[in-house]
Simulated assay, not measured.
Amino acid sequence: MKKTLSIIGKIIAVLAIVIVLFLAIVFLVNIICNKMEQGKIESYGQFVTVDGKNMNVFIQGEGEETVVLLPGYGTATPALDFKLLIDELSPFYKVVAIEPFGYGLSDETDKERSTENIVSEMHEALQQLDIDKFTLMGHSIAGIYGLDYVNKYPNEVSAFVGIDSSVPTQPGMDVELPVKTFEFVEKSGLLRLIMKVSGDPYAGLAFDAQTVEQMKMISNKNMYNATTLNEMEHISSNFKGAQDLTFPKDLPLLLFVQANNAGVEGWIPLHEEQVKDSVYGKMIPMEGSHYLHHTQFKEIADNFRQFMKEAK
């Protein structure tokens, strides 16, 4: 018995040493890679000063009408992630992609990531750019922030377009998310390893190689940073705070919705409910992943242009 226990103890000790060494190597590799990649990240867009910090904004196109793009939660490189859609829209519109604090090339912030603060910061960025009339087009959780925006600044928004946008009453948003776990995975370097072995998320998409390389490096820099983790902590309260809000009835409302979302019960009916009372409301189901703008960018741009002509 003693001999057996001794062998088991030695095995456990060896396994513990192996795990510690593995984590140490992963941690050091992540630090080295971060430093190497930092000098390879290329700047794009322009900075505007918001709350004393730099917020990055990318502008393309010179159209008379303006489209402002807002990213979904955790989209580490918003302006590059929207590139395919921007290229389709910019021949006809002035397209403005906002990178909120903690995203893209923007600074991080210690300010709480409540809807109120996020919307206020986006508004200030647009004010700095003298943009006071535009279509607001948002992906995923931007459906929550956009809903708040159009109610706070109704005279600025001429239409809202959702790209598989979140709905305040969708189920499952009242759960407590494992923020500490995500923080550990990021700080330990395990996140980089997980992303490396998970395969290429951009494989088969129309992004060019240089854009993909930049998105991957910026994702390694931004994913689960302190700012976006704080936003994760506020997700439940931000959804709850939007449950009494609706889009103004006279605001043109166009929702592109993933046709087969098995992860959220009643995904299509939830969006049908949002558009049913709108004077200019339309919902278009689309085949594809949650990131519809990665594969359906041409269809989104064409349908948007047609919708805006009809809404006028």
Rank of each mutant, 00 (worst) to 15 (best):
M1I: 15
M1Q: 14
K2H: 15
G9F: 05
I11D: 04
I11M: 08
I12L: 13
V20Q: 01
L21V: 15
F22E: 05
I31R: 14
I31W: 10
Q46E: 14
K53T: 11
N54E: 10
V57A: 00
T66A: 05
V68F: 07
L69P: 07
G74R: 06
G74V: 08
A76N: 07
T77I: 07
D81T: 02
L84S: 00
L85C: 12
L89G: 06
S90K: 15
Y93N: 02
P100R: 01
G102I: 00
Y103C: 08
G104E: 08
L105C: 03
E116S: 14
N117L: 01
S120P: 09
S120L: 13
M122C: 09
Q128Y: 01
I141A: 08
K152Q: 10
F160Q: 02
D164P: 02
Q170P: 06
P171A: 05
G172C: 12
V179S: 06
T181N: 13
T181K: 15
F184V: 11
E186K: 15
E186C: 12
E186I: 11
K187S: 15
K187R: 13
S188L: 02
R192C: 05
M195W: 13
L205D: 07
L205S: 11
A206D: 11
Q210M: 08
T211F: 00
T211P: 00
Q214F: 03
I218G: 03
K221W: 09
N222P: 09
M223T: 11
A226Q: 14
T228I: 05
E233A: 07
H234S: 14
I235A: 04
S236K: 13
F239C: 04
G241P: 05
G241D: 09
D244L: 10
P248Y: 02
P252Y: 12
L254Q: 13
L254H: 14
V257P: 02
A259N: 04
G263F: 12
L270K: 09
V279E: 15
G288F: 00
H290K: 11
Y291W: 15
H294F: 15
D302G: 12
Q306H: 14
E310A: 11
A311Q: 09
